[in-house]
């Protein structure tokens, strides 16, 4: 039986008709190969990149935007949030710097996405 999914890997949002599983997986409606991988994953273990913020001790930068480096299972998102909410950043970080090594037992690191700079940015 065909199932309809929307690929969320890019803003095109292709409507996928998916049937079969594993080796027998058939996908139609995808404009690129990533749609096939997405469908396979979505049927077995839907996962997402989690983007959120963590608290810092810097008044000029009270929260730092972060994301998971890789996807975490959708079902684990709130467990991840709980762990992230307990963190307080005490160093000025730059994009890519690791905030947490292994998030809530997923093995996926949490990284900074913004440049906290040295105090107020002066460019001129």
């Amino acid at each position: 039986m065909a199932k309809e999914l929307i690929c969320i890997q890019c803003p095109q949002g292709c409507r996928l008709q998916v049937s079969g599983r594993g080796e027998g997986l058939k996908v139609r409606g995808n404009k690129c190969a990533r749609g096939i991988a997405y469908a396979g994953k979505e049927l077995t273990n839907p996962s997402r990149t989690l983007t959120t913020t963590v608290r810092t001790c810097f008044p000029d930068f009270p929260v730092l935007p972060v994301r998971t480096r890789g996807e975490v299972p959708l079902a684990r998102i709130f467990a991840c949030m709980e762990e992230i909410n307990a963190v307080r950043v005490e160093r000025r970080l730059r994009p890519g710097d690791v905030v947490l090594d292994r998030l809530a037992g997923t093995g996926v690191p949490l990284i900074a996405t913004a440049d906290m700079g040295e105090g107020k940015a002066v460019y001129h």
Binding site: Q9, C10, T51, P65, R67, P95, T113, A114, D115
Partner: peptide
């Protein structure tokens, strides 16, 4: 982009899924 912390930026320009702050950076 500083406040658009979600991802999905940059697929056309960089072929990567970046967050707003990463794209701006």
């Amino acid at each position: 982009l500083k406040q658009c912390i979600h991802d999905g930026f940059g697929l056309v320009r960089y072929g990567e899924k970046l967050t707003g702050p990463e794209y701006a950076w």
